[in-house]
Computed example of a mutant assay.
Amino acid sequence: MALLLAAAQAAGPIALRYWRRDPKAWEKEAGAGPVSEADLAVDAALKDHLRAARPDYGWLSEETPDDPARLSHDRVFVVDPIDGTRAFLAGEEAFALSLAVAVAGVVKAAVVHLPARGLTYAAHAGGPATRNGAEIHASARTDLPGADVLTTRATLAPEFWPRGVPDLKRSFRASLAWRLCLAAEGKHDAMLTLRDTWEWDSAAGSLIAERAGCRVTDRHGAALRFNQPVPQAPGVIAAPPDLHAALRAHLA
């Protein structure tokens, strides 16, 4: 975790050098969203920092062409250089650097850093989740009605909820990694996405939420696994255990 923290703190200023300075940006193929020169610069800096220290680790990043050689590595860096690129390009503060180490498919160390907000969330297996070094805890909420859930408007479409759309308060932030961290610190009661979710978006935040007391699974209730051949999961649910069970019951 110390290595991830150092890498995030070193790369954060690189992102800020481009932020609100009209960086070059373009759309990825197949409707995969925008990317900018800032994403690529941060990705290169993180890769240089992390792989110089751990050359035997695999590498999975949103902005690096995927190399199947990562599948032969037991330990893999899972990185999103800028999670929330649309917010970044709009000059908003809600973007994050997401860094994780997965060992045999399970995240063991994680950092989510928001340089424009001065926030750093972190966790490692067996330890607490922290925000700027202070321990954080998930919400104590158990009831679904009225719960404050970070999710998209599309997620609340009736076709996803055979038992009826639950009566909840919807909130949203651009960065999925930050949404997981906000659930971890109890600022919101839960985080939910039903769309297929890239591993680099969820890896770091999932461990932070888990160590803060959330149950974190895919939309079907299965544990998340990382460094998969196709690095996606069928959605993510992060919530305190009773609230997680209530969400799953409504989705079933």
Rank of each mutant, 00 (worst) to 15 (best):
F95C: 06
V165S: 10
A53G: 01
A246P: 05
P166N: 04
D148V: 11
E199D: 12
Q228S: 13
M1S: 13
T155G: 12
F172S: 10
I136S: 05
R117P: 07
P241K: 00
A125Q: 13
A53D: 00
L97Q: 15
A129P: 08
K187N: 09
W59K: 06
A38T: 02
L50Y: 01
A109D: 11
L176Q: 14
R211N: 02
P229F: 08
Q228E: 14
T130L: 13
S175A: 06
A177Y: 14
E210L: 08
P81W: 01
V112Q: 05
A209V: 06
D242N: 09
V79A: 08
T155D: 12
E159Q: 15
V230M: 12
L46Y: 02
R170Q: 10
L114K: 13
G84A: 05
T85D: 04
I136D: 05
V103M: 00
G84I: 06
K28A: 10
A11V: 03
E92V: 07
L5T: 15
A11W: 03
A246S: 08
A44Y: 02
D83N: 14
D67L: 05
R163M: 14
A94N: 15
A109P: 01
E29Y: 08
A69C: 07
S61T: 02
A30I: 00
H124D: 13
V236D: 10
A125L: 13
L243N: 00
S72G: 13
L3K: 07
T155M: 13
I14F: 01
M1R: 11
E93T: 15
D74H: 08
L182C: 04
A2V: 11
R54H: 03
F95P: 07
L247A: 05
